Amino acid sequence: MSLLIAPLALGAGVAWLEARHRLRPASPLWLMARDWKVSSSADVLRVAGVLEISNPHPRMEVFVPELRVEPTLLGRADLSSLTVTTRIQADHPDEEPRADGYWAAYIVKGLKTTRARVTIEIRGGAALELVDTLWVDVQWMNYGPFGRLSRRQGVPVAVRGPRPLRADQAQWQSGDGCTVLPVKTHLLGPLDDPIEVLRRYAAPLLQPGDVLTIGETPLAVIQGRYQHPSEVEPGMLARLACRVFHPTSSLATACGMQTLIDVVGPTRVIAAWIGGLLMKLVSIPGGFYRLAGDQARLIDDITGTTPPYDQTIVLGPERSASFCAEASEALGVDVAIVDVNDLGRVKVLASSSGCDEPLLQRALKPNPAGNANQRTPLVLVRSGRG
């Protein structure tokens, strides 16, 4: 009888842990930025777009009592002389908009959607030319059966971007039996289509046999796979498990670890932690990351990527293999998603069929894209020395 008690107790504990994790308070609402456009005149830069709030739950009704936007300007120099004004107008399907712009508390019913129209005007004369990105920080409240939850989501709007390179302007770098070309883009985000980004900035440079790579983090932010740490509520497991990781690891903070738990579940994290410890005892390093899954290695905690995403936690991309196949078909060259760092580590997360991955290992080992704020998420690799 005693032999049955331990497995039953373990099973009950695992079931309780998973149930507690899955039934924790959460709002079903989703916020998406859509149809953002930039226009300019001699002394005014105008950015306008829509924030769409959807409720996929069939029955739950959720209040949105507060919604505000805090814009942040990013650019190449001091922007303090510029003035910014923001206006939010509710665009509910069943209410007339208020002329004064006040956001009145609104109920988003099950399977319904509402919208907010945002207009941001930037004034300041010649200094407007220094602005390249507007970071739209949306702070909104969800109120319902789950309690009162603060939500926060940032969206970058590209104001200006680099002109796509022409083939005669490209400055290729020599590598090990290959040449590489880091390709600049604007600051990427959820308003972008990833294949259109590749087409816009790289298509004029492509030749048959080339391999076009995109970093895993830039693709992830295009897919919207990032969140502000204020949206993460670390539990006891996250606070305990994070303490055993090296301080430079993205899992060494409670929010970073909780992000992984939210993706793979607490049971897998506990199993990976125990399994990783046992593997370490027999001199097998990296056991936790192998057992916890790819996202354990791909999560970037704050400071882990380029501003303004340095204030967010970024997951790894999803649907990587299908993206590479679609992009390769659209562009006519091989495409790969890569994770590269300054230590010479190159990981090919996914690639199109027939891609020369040993070539990528040689070409990307020096990390030609850089790990700072170069904004070169694309690297074009060409076999031979050009």
Rank of each mutant, 00 (worst) to 15 (best):
R163E: 15
K280C: 02
H186P: 08
G275F: 03
E121P: 04
D262V: 06
T85A: 15
G209H: 01
E233T: 14
T86M: 04
V62H: 04
L212M: 01
V69H: 00
E96S: 13
R319G: 04
R375F: 04
W36S: 07
P229A: 06
A167L: 11
H228K: 01
L82R: 00
R152L: 11
R225I: 03
P56R: 08
I284V: 15
L364T: 01
H21T: 03
V244I: 12
A33E: 09
R123Q: 14
A325Y: 02
E196G: 06
L23M: 10
P307R: 03
V183D: 06
P58C: 05
M236T: 11
I302Y: 06
P218G: 02
P358Y: 01
V340G: 07
W16S: 10
Q258E: 15
A372I: 03
E216G: 01
Q171L: 12
Q139N: 13
G11T: 09
A19D: 06
G175S: 09
L111D: 14
G224C: 10
F323A: 05
S150P: 11
R123S: 15
V338H: 09
L298C: 02
L111M: 13
R117W: 06
W36K: 10
Q227F: 03
V47D: 06
D210R: 00
P229N: 04
N341G: 08
I261Q: 05
E129H: 12
L29T: 07
R87T: 14
A104Y: 05
L31E: 10
L45H: 02
A202R: 03
P25T: 04
W273T: 14
E357F: 00
A48L: 02
V335K: 04
S328E: 08
I120K: 00
A158G: 11
K37F: 04
P266L: 09
I302W: 05
H246W: 10
R46Q: 15
F146R: 06
C178H: 09
R98G: 12
L360F: 02
G293Y: 11
P25Q: 07
P208Q: 04
V282P: 01
L8D: 05
G304E: 06
R290C: 11
T312C: 14
K184T: 07
F288M: 06
L251F: 09
Q173A: 09
I88T: 13
L298R: 13
P28C: 07
L349H: 07
L111A: 14
W103M: 11
L149G: 04
I302Q: 14
L23T: 13
C242H: 10
G161K: 14
A99D: 10
G161P: 02
G161R: 15
A6T: 11
G13H: 02
V159K: 13
G154A: 15
L181P: 12
T217P: 00
G344W: 06
A369I: 01
A241N: 04
P65Q: 10
K280V: 00
V157S: 11
Y289H: 14
E326Y: 00
L360I: 03
I5G: 03
V335H: 05
T312K: 11
S39G: 12
Y289E: 15
S80T: 14
E52W: 03
L74P: 00
L343R: 13
P307F: 01
V14M: 11
E129V: 01
G147E: 14
P247L: 07
V180A: 08
A220Y: 05
V131R: 13
G177T: 10
G49T: 07
L349R: 12
G265T: 07
A325F: 02
I53E: 08
R243D: 05
D192T: 02
D168Q: 10
R166C: 02
